[in-house]
Structures are given as structure tokens and as C-alpha cells.
Write a protein that binds this DNA or RNA. Structure first.
Lengths: 244, 244
DNA sequence: TAGTGGTCTAGACCACAAA
DNA sequence: TTGTGGTCTAGACCACTAA
């Protein structure tokens, strides 16, 4: 049983959230299973009730668990639909959908900022940008193409430090540059597949794709990454809840 | 100053949330203004810190306020990006985008529930369903097609009571049947325009469309409406914010 | 240095579901 | 009756901002 580290800079409720999310991800807790009651989690992890509830709140927001008053807290049944509230990695996303994730690098290079990139990342045109283009596969079938643009001054040499077919870009930003992507804004559109995208994704030309453009911000509110994703519409949909 | 009622069945943090939301709505607190610090809210309303923070959390989730550590809590600047959190009417949505909304009725009829509709609306196959299909226009150009399915037993005769080219369906549900749509779940996809949709929307066949399927629930958590919307991809996109 | 939000604990009472 | 999550209070220490 992993324990919480009270000396870590990461808040206890975040640590507990990660632990529980991992247990659900590797099916240690399956859909419909009851989680330990809050009082037991308090004892097991030596945390206060508020802390435990904060961690559970995050899991509820993720759609991973649900609570029933006076009955208990349960693992949700997977919907194959991503919740649109939290930033999740491609690997986590696919895991939640019950699919095996893999990645192929299509391009990795330094380029000068175009006017559009300069505006999105709030820097000067011509400034160095790290560009990483990846094909994402789920169960060995193409799922999406991701094009990342990183403001290079915040993460010099990032492209050479890891193999981003297996190592998450977010982890590299956190471990090597102390940049945590805490917030993001995104736009969602439908587009028709251009010839090259269609070829890479193995769909007919002009097939519908779900297209997302996302700017992610660090803990200091600096725009770090501009991301474009094209998802195969036959394999991917988004899910969220609204309030009236 | 309205006070909290500790004897009410409504939780204190909900009451405080409503009070603050009303103050923001009527511009008593304008964009950029600082809210009273938590400690002052505690004193003003006689509530504990956890209660005050629960109320503020709801406002943050609504995108109405934001917090800055060690600086204060502030009223957010309104953006068109609250779209994916709250249910808004087509007219409101277009207004926020600076467009003039109008509507044409394409179909209005009673049909028996198919298996799919029965499942979405949690009723028996064959049960009566009111179907309303509308073309939505923005600045007199086609924007989307909406197909509404209503569980007829909750709103008998609804189709004949108003002209839904000008009168909002939601208002009819609220005023005539005391049904308020307080919650909804939706999925977002990209699809290719079928021949008939393409014709009505005035786009080429197989053009990409943004497709939303939404189930809306009443205050009693009964599924009332199943809605399908097809938006022209060249005219419509969604925005939202994520947290990491 | 003072004030703010972020995190955390300990303890309490309630409503509700299930045995 | 027991155990659960829902709500609530009082009090505390910390990190950070701004004067």
C-alpha cells in the first residue's frame, strides 16, 4: 500500500487522488465496486476527512467514481467517453476507454514562430519553437495526430532529452523544467481530413475529423504549449455534463 | 444584506452560492472586482470557512469568479467560453457570438418511441414521443438543425401550445409543465453531412458537421428531452477550459 | 509585515439505505 | 440499529503578494 508523503510539495489530496486513480486504472477496483468508505480511507492513509473528500471530488469530476448517499462510493462504469473537465494524457484517456495506447513520432524539429504561433504562445514572431508531431494509436489502429508547439525558451533542448514515443511530454516539462500544465483553453471543431492527414490516419480523404486546438498554461500562467489534435471521428467522441 | 437560513433544507453553501451569483448577475460586483475575502464572508454570513469555500468552488466551476493565491478572489471577465458548462438556448448562444438568431420549423409530430429513444429517455418502446425538428439560422444563414424528442407523458400536448419558431421550448416546459431542465449530459462528435442535412444546411454533401447528442434532466432527475444537433463546421465551434 | 487563498486536522450532527 | 455520505464548525499552519 503506497503511503502519502506529508513532506512532498504535492498536496496530500492530490497524492491520494493519483493513488486511487491508478488503482482504478489497473482494474484493482473494477466498475461497480465499492471504494473503501471515507472513514476507512482516512485511517488507511492517515488523512483528515476533508482531504479524503477533496481527492474523491476530483475522481467524481473525472467521472471515474460516483457517490450514493448512505450507500457508498463506487467505481463508475466506463463510458468510452472522455470527460471534458480535466486535462488527461493520451495514454490515460485510452486506458479509461479500455484501449492500449501507442505512439509514433512523425516529426521533431525547431522552427521559427509564425504569426499565429506567436500570438497563441504570446511571444515574438521568429522566436524558436519546438515542434513535435506524433501519430497516436489505440489497439494499434490510428486514432489521432497531435502537433505540439512549445515555447522553446521555457524548455531549451527539450526535443533531445527524451524519446517522446514512450515518455510523456508533460512529464518532461515537469521533471526537467519544473513546468506543470495546470490550466488549458481549447476550441473544438469538425473538419474534413486533408490528403496527408487522411493517409496517416488511414481514413478516406475528406472524412470528418474532430479537431481540437488547445493552449496550455503553466502554474505561473505562462502559455507553454499550443497543441493541435485531429481525431478520427469514427473512433472518438467527447462527453460532458452541463448545468442549467 | 440577505442572510443565510440555517433551518432551510437548502444547504448553507448553496444559499451563499445563490446570493453571490445574484450579486454578480445584477452587476453589483462587476468583472475584475474583488470579492470580499473568505474571512469576511465568514463573518458577514456567519458561516465556517469550508462552507464559504464550497460556495466559491461552485462559482469557480461556473467560470464566474477566479482565485489568485495571496491576492484575492475576483469576478471573471465574461467570455464566450462558458458554453460547455451551462445550458444556453440557441438564441442566447448566438447573441453571445454577436449574431441574430432565427428559426424555421421543419417537423412537429407525435411518434412512438424507438428502442434508442426509449433507452435515452428511460421509457417503454412505443410510448408517445413529441418530435420537433427545427432549422436554426444565424444572420439569416443556416447554422444548425436541431431534432428534439420529448417524453410526451411529462408534457402532454406541448407541440400545440406554442409556436416554437419564436417561443423557446424550455420556457414552455417551465411555464406549462413546471419542468426545469437543470442538468444535461452530452456527447460531441464529428460527422459527414447526409444528403438531406446538407441540402437544408446549404453545404456540400459529406461536409463535416459538429454533432451533439444531449439528454436533459428535470429538477427531479427525470430525463425529459433527447436532443440531436448538427452544426455547420464552417460556422460553429465550441470552447472550454480544462484543469490539470 | 499584513492579508490572502491553499491545505489540513479533529470533531460533530444529520438524512438516508439497508439489514 | 448500523454505516454511509452530506454538511458544518473551529482552529491551525503555510506560501505567496503587495505594501
Amino acid at each position: 500500500m503506497p503511503a502519502l508523503n506529508p513532506n512532498s510539495k504535492i498536496p496530500l489530496y492530490q497524492q491520494l487522488y493519483e493513488i486511487l486513480r491508478a488503482r482504478i486504472a489497473r482494474r484493482e477496483l473494477g466498475p461497480g465496486d465499492m471504494l473503501p468508505p471515507e472513514i476507512r480511507l482516512m485511517a488507511q492513509y492517515g488523512a483528515g476527512r476533508v482531504t479524503v473528500r477533496q481527492a474523491l471530488d476530483l475522481l467524481v469530476q473525472d467521472g471515474l467514481i460516483y457517490r450514493e448517499r448512505a450507500r457508498g462510493t463506487f467505481v463508475a462504469h466506463p463510458t468510452a467517453e472522455q470527460n471534458l473537465v480535466r486535462i488527461v494524457s493520451f495514454t490515460q484517456d485510452m486506458q479509461q476507454r479500455g484501449l492500449k495506447a501507442s505512439t509514433r513520432i512523425l516529426a521533431s524539429e525547431l522552427i521559427p514562430a509564425t504569426a499565429e504561433l506567436a500570438e497563441k504562445l504570446q511571444l515574438e514572431p521568429g522566436e524558436a519553437i519546438a515542434r513535435l508531431e506524433r501519430l497516436r494509436l489505440a489497439d494499434d489502429e490510428p486514432m489521432s495526430v497531435e502537433e505540439s508547439f512549445l515555447a522553446h525558451r521555457f524548455c531549451p533542448n527539450i526535443l533531445k532529452r527524451h524519446n517522446y514515443a514512450t515518455y510523456p511530454l508533460r512529464d518532461a516539462l515537469a521533471s526537467d523544467y519544473n513546468l506543470r500544465l495546470t490550466r488549458a483553453k481549447q476550441t473544438i471543431r469538425a473538419v474534413a481530413a486533408r490528403a496527408e492527414l487522411a493517409r496517416v490516419l488511414a481514413v478516406p480523404q475528406r472524412s470528418p475529423l474532430l479537431h481540437i486546438e488547445r493552449v496550455s498554461f503553466s502554474q505561473d500562467n505562462a502559455p507553454i504549449e499550443f497543441l493541435r489534435i485531429w481525431y478520427r471521428a469514427d473512433r472518438y467522441s467527447l462527453f460532458n455534463e452541463l448545468q442549467g
